[in-house]
Design a protein around this nucleic acid. Structure first.
Length: 194
DNA sequence: AGCACGATTAACT
DNA sequence: GTTAATCGTGCTC
């Protein structure tokens, strides 16, 4: 029996959720195969006042899932070719989310290898759009409930990452976002092991 | 008009 | 081996 992280996990401060998602396990049922990966990089996007967050535009068809209950998926399309996976955080009507930027594939390596032909393992899922390709995540999964194993996508508890292995820095890929939002240290990544 | 990107290329060391 | 620059693509507002 899968045991997804409960709504209470997501109903907290977005920064806390982003930090604690490091080490957690992203699980995807695809073609009858269980894929999973350890989350290694996240970014927090916090409300309408965060000018890097899509919710800066207010409640629109695209952003409305962020206004809904925590623990849902916010999947959106950008740059004409890329899907991105976020998890909705905080109580309803506070539009926030954590972008899942990278995972390390654990289960289902054969299927992922087949989905990422010609790509070496470390590059299978080391970017937010790459992991969506590897795990078969598209707009079909927007707004699904990640706290129950009903949609074939959820997050399980993993191995906690100790503070000394966490690197914190500014979010990336924000081209024209003004300060102070552009420089806010809201990116969390697990330091490379070895 | 403007993207919460990634691959390719071109320049370096 | 590295970093920097370019641009395709189509959805959102």
């Amino acid at each position: 029996m899968p045991t997804p992280l409960p709504p209470d996990f997501y109903a907290r401060s977005t920064l806390t959720v982003a930090r604690e998602l490091l080490g957690a396990r992203l699980v995807r049922m695809l073609d009858g195969v269980r894929l999973s990966g350890t989350i290694t990089e996240t970014e927090a996007y916090v409300g309408e006042t965060d000018l890097a967050c899509h919710a800066r535009a207010g409640r629109t068809p695209r952003t409305q899932v962020m206004y809904g209950p925590p623990g849902r998926a916010y999947v959106y399309f950008t740059y004409g070719m890329h899907w991105m996976l976020n998890v909705v955080t905080e109580p309803e009507n506070f539009p926030c989310a954590v972008l899942i930027r990278a995972v390390e594939v654990i289960e289902g390596q054969e299927l992922v290898a087949a989905r990422r032909p010609g790509v070496a393992k470390p590059q299978w899922t080391d970017g937010p759009a790459k992991l969506c390709v590897a795990f078969g995540i598209t707009g079909d999964l927007n707004a699904v409930d990640l706290t129950r194993p009903v949609a074939g996508l959820w997050v399980e508890a993993g191995e906690p990452v100790p503070a000394e292995n966490v690197t914190i820095g500014p979010r990336v890929g924000l081209y024209s976002v003004p300060e102070p939002w552009k420089g806010m240290p809201w990116r969390f990544l697990r330091r490379r092991e070895k």
